[in-house]
């Protein structure tokens, strides 16, 4: 039980806790060599992989962002085109309606004018025929009256 305490305290020429010897430089060399080996086997390749992945992710992100922006631009463009097309269609419809209205009105007016004209001419025809008939009737009546008068006077 006491032997290890004695050893720790004594620092005997052979052994002891603070026994410095050639272990020190050899261990240092060993750690330096380990540093180079780990650098070649671990730090460089893993760092390369991680950094490649990071750059891959960042470029993919940038690309995706760019594509998103492009899509948004296209969408806005198409939206604009759509609105214009709608407006055009609207004006076309309005134009067509107006045109139709105008045509309808003109056709209606024409038809009315024609109807009026034909009614007028018919009325005039009727009037002239009635006048003619009246004239003929009046002439006939006059003639008959004259005849009656002539006959009566002849009898007497």
């Amino acid at each position: 039980m006491t032997s290890w305490l004695l050893l720790a305290a004594a620092g005997a020429p052979e052994g002891g806790l603070f026994d410095l010897d050639a272990t020190l430089p050899l261990m240092a060399v060993q750690v330096v060599i380990l540093t180079f080996i780990l650098n070649a086997l671990f730090f460089r390749p893993v760092g390369k992989t991680v950094e490649e992945r990071e750059s891959y992710i960042s470029t993919s992100r940038a690309e995706a962002k760019q594509q998103l922006a492009q899509t948004e631009r296209l969408e806005a463009d198409l939206r604009h085109q759509l609105r214009e097309a709608r407006q055009q269609a609207q004006t076309l419809i309005v134009d067509a309606e107006q045109e139709m209205d105008r045509l309808y009105r003109s056709a209606l007016a024409e038809a009315q004018a024609e109807a009026n004209a034909s009614r007028e001419s018919a009325r005039r025809e009727i009037d002239s025929q009635r006048q003619q008939a009246e004239d003929t009737l009046n002439g006939e009546a006059d003639r008959l009256g004259d005849l009656i008068v002539t006959r009566l006077l002849a009898v007497q």
Partner: peptide, 15 residues
């Protein structure tokens, strides 16, 4: 543990 030896730790510290 190699680090329980003073030689190792001094070697590391000097590095």
């Amino acid at each position: 543990a190699p680090t329980a030896d003073i030689n190792t730790t001094i070697a590391l510290a000097l590095l």
